[in-house]
Design a protein around this nucleic acid. Structure first.
Lengths: 341, 341
DNA sequence: GTGAAAGCGCTAACAT
DNA sequence: ATGTTAGCGCTTTCAC
């Protein structure tokens, strides 16, 4: 193995001191042009790269962000992640990723694993189990250990930190209002994420839209559960009770399954039934008919989170910005599953 | 901010030396029980965590793996990534992720960013542009800098390193053979990834299966391109020329678009047309009809890659294993888009 | 059983 | 303009 070049080595080979080399490479005005050139050329020749770890140890900062994501297979998280990665890289930060797999224990473990100088701060979305258990001590500890957190999408009011969210309540209200404008009379609500904060917010938006429009809430056409299998079971009976002409789905699974079930029943979409759901854009477009969705702008959420965290990390001592909750606007994307106005 | 606990501090507060503390915490037999207990308890009280960066600097290893992925929004890569993350975490390794976005430049940039002590080795899949340009210098440099690489899925024969692949050729042959067994007479090949090594291998498998079964190759029902838009354009005409009763699709986009086009034409699937494609399992199940796919076992690929890399990293000097190419078996998952035998 | 000291690779304050 | 030195936090060898 080719020995890695270090300042020390270069210094010895060039018969100068380590600090001269260091300064020459950082283009310090203290060093004369000739030596600078000599050192820089030699360094390039030797393919010298400053050892990041040593620099980190010295500077007490790693320029690395810890990202904890409940489930990377969920396209929403994948999109947010790509935004984080981009935002971080643009500012010269690396991203260490852990997947909590919706488990509180893995979330805690991941945070511990990284809370030792490895990273400068966290960007995360709270795991399902953590939300259920309402266990937030690990977040508070990180914050008090001077490891700032930016939460996105699934957040907790109990933790004081920067947050990036989507206007779930408003988005749902808008979507349901849209269905109402399309003259839907019986709008079902289907959700398999009723355990999540965002699931609850979205359901509230639905209720509010109905109430605002003087619709009556019909529990028979509302499915709220936190379990996909239970969901599938209850979905079977959804079309029995009443003629449904609109469906509002709070998550990807619910969106697609509801649509599939309707097609199987021979219900014509969008002529007899309009569907709007929270789901991934690419795949929604690929469905037949394509699914109208609420676009959450995942990459922008990620970029915003990265920007907020880095701003805080790079703030001068005592000049840290106030904690902020940024809301990224959603957008209703009309496709074939809703008829045109 | 609560000052972070260091050995030095603890030593001072306990009136012992730094090395005593260090040894006590690592449970060295050199230290007496009473001092050990005293130190360990005090450390726990102070919530001491050894500074990872300092440990890294000392040990010259970071226990961190650099992962470079062309596109995290592709569910296949997301799955492999989750496997890598799991495999790495199980062995106490962290994962730094960069997304090349199919760009050679970003790939190079990411590798440079990490080739300075930040990571101990790479796991990556070659970007599209890199494959097109056949530019592999950056990989070879990393290898000779003692930063081992494990490539997966999209690999290059020009780089000597560990590899994890799928039996693309065999998988395709099997899939097409299956269509033939279903009595398909005119089997179309559709691909929007003809620039990738895997795309070519899969196409070869198709050809081979046809040849083996004495079918004639009909260029009119073969679409091979590297551009989704071009693909969509050519797809429109696919059903014009000939009655197709089988489609073999080499990637997700091709799979779904072909199916969508067939449905639009009113072609009955699977009665009149059977389709098999490379695609994500979750979404394939959600399509109507659900799509028969070739499952690539993404998580296993990732775990294998992590295992191979870590084995090499932890091998004693001079005892590194030979470079190996591991093949993960694929599996034909029959769903509704192919009729039963 | 405990401690002093060197050193990982780097930066920067402080000589010269 | 260049060099010396100390120190980041830790491990480890070697004295005592």
């Amino acid at each position: 193995m080719k020995q890695k070049a270090t300042l020390k080595q270069i210094a010895k080979e060039l018969n100068v001191s380590v600090s001269t080399v260091s300064k020459a490479l950082s283009n310090s005005p203290e060093i004369s042009e000739p030596t600078k050139i000599k050192v820089q050329e030699f360094a390039k020749l030797k393919n010298y790269k400053p050892n990041n770890i040593a620099v980190n140890l010295k500077s007490k900062r790693s320029k690395t962000i810890g990202v904890i994501i409940p489930n990377i297979l969920n396209p929403f998280f994948a999109k947010v992640f790509s935004g984080i990665e981009k935002g971080a890289n643009d500012k010269g930060y690396n991203v260490i990723t852990c997947i909590s797999n919706e488990s509180l224990e893995k979330e805690i473990h991941a945070m511990e694993m990284l809370s030792n100088g490895t990273i400068d701060g966290f960007i995360l979305s709270i795991s399902e189990e953590t939300q259920k258990e309402q266990e937030f001590k690990h977040f508070k500890e990180a914050m008090s250990d001077d490891l700032p957190i930016v939460m996105f999408d699934r957040i907790s009011d109990e933790v004081t930190c920067d947050k990036v969210i989507v206007d779930d309540f408003e988005a749902s209200k808008d979507a349901v209002n849209h269905l109402i404008k399309l003259k839907c009379k019986n709008i079902a609500l289907v959700s398999s994420i009723d355990n999540l904060s965002v699931g609850k917010l979205r359901a509230e938006g639905y209720i509010r839209a109905l109430v605002d429009n003087k619709y009556t809430i019909n529990e028979d056409i509302i499915i709220r559960t936190d379990n996909p299998d239970d969901f599938d079971e209850r979905l079977k009976k959804l079309f029995d009770t009443k003629t449904i002409d609109g469906i509002f789905a709070l998550d990807e699974h619910a969106s697609v399954m509801a649509m599939k079930a309707a097609i199987k029943r021979g219900i014509k979409i969008p002529e007899e039934l309009s569907i709007i759901g929270f789901a991934d854009g690419v795949w929604s477009r690929r469905l037949t008919p394509s699914l109208s969705t609420i676009s959450q702008h995942g990459p922008e959420i990620g970029e915003a989170a990265a920007e907020m965290l880095i701003k805080r990390l790079e703030a001068k001592e005592g000049e840290e910005p106030d904690y902020e909750t940024r809301t990224i606007k959603t957008e209703l994307r009309q496709r074939e599953s809703t008829r045109k106005l």
